[in-house]
Design a binder for these strands. Structure first.
Lengths: 169, 169
DNA sequence: GCCTAGATGATAATTATTACCATCCGATAC
DNA sequence: GTATCGGATGGTAATAATTATCATCTAGGC
């Protein structure tokens, strides 16, 4: 299969630089530089709407009809793992509800997905004085702090230790 | 079917007050006060872990084996609509990705789910000086501003107008 | 008690994502 | 350039979460 770089279009300097770095950063992460990965990162950099896998799939498909949706899903996750993309919706896999109506925020463990309430004051001031929301009328806001909880931190370091031992065998 | 109030247990004063208000607030919202709804809001108020529908289902089921998972899903959404609960994961229905690695935040239209980047400075200071994250080691944070975008605002008000006309017929 | 709109339970359908596996190909060593 | 090999891909089945459908039931107003 042969894929080519999607049209230059009106990509910004940022996207251009990121594309230039991309191959190296893949290799640094131990990943092969495939035409699919190039097409997907390029579509992601060209988008301004924080797309879902399906949207990227549709965009990439126009030029490369053979690409598979599964590849798009996999690749987007991979890009997040090597730090080339971010998942905006950390807790997207199922809806989580909160009965606490008082204004508050959340710390989320990135590993076990436990969520705990946090109170933070003074946010309102920072947002009001700062955010330019042209075209959007704000209704509310919520801060999500990504974190590692103590028990996950312990388990993660144990796993690393085991991994190292495995690697030495 | 007959459901009863889940054991008093160690419900806080907050939950107690909310339970007391609940029936009235349902009627205000034009909703029937059913045993299922009582059981679900009570389970939600008793939980501190921002549960998913399945978790509430499991909790409620212990005392009320006949309740359906579909009812739990529907009811949780309904509770959000009348303002008795919040969905912590507004954009949970599909994963959204972002190629922009620079630190930034998001405004999300609650209607069409468009997401736009916002830059907000000074957040770091507020969080560091404020948040008590006992047991969690922070890795990053992101602020999500819920909003209504201009075009959705227009459509929503058009729809209301149509609705009123319908209602007059 | 009776009636009706709305609520529920049971289950099918839909949607997003992941798993699986045969085949392919990028990267490295020759 | 060729051979080799482990990771990557495409096609598709499987899974998980949620929503739709519809027959039945019931809360709330009379």
């Amino acid at each position: 299969m042969e894929l080519q770089i999607i049209s230059e279009g009106r990509r910004g300097a940022y996207a251009k630089r990121r594309m230039a770095e991309f191959a190296d950063r893949c290799r640094q992460g131990g990943l092969a530089v495939t035409p699919q990965r190039l097409a997907i990162i390029e579509a992601l950099l060209a988008a301004t709407d924080h797309p879902r896998a399906e949207t990227i799939f549709a965009a990439v498909r126009k030029l490369h009809p053979h690409i598979s949706l599964a590849t798009v899903h996999r690749t987007l996750e991979t890009l997040c793992q090597i730090g080339e993309a971010r998942k905006v919706t950390m807790l997207h896999d199922s809806a989580r509800y909160d009965g606490n109506l008082a204004p508050h925020h959340h710390v989320v463990c990135v590993r076990c997905r436990r969520i705990r309430d946090v109170e933070i004051s003074g946010l309102e001031r920072v947002i009001d004085s700062n955010a330019e929301l042209k075209g959007f009328r704000p209704l509310g806001w919520s801060l999500e702090i990504q974190a590692l909880c103590d028990s996950c931190r312990k388990e993660a370091s144990d796993a690393r230790r085991r991994g190292r031992r495995q690697a030495l065998k």
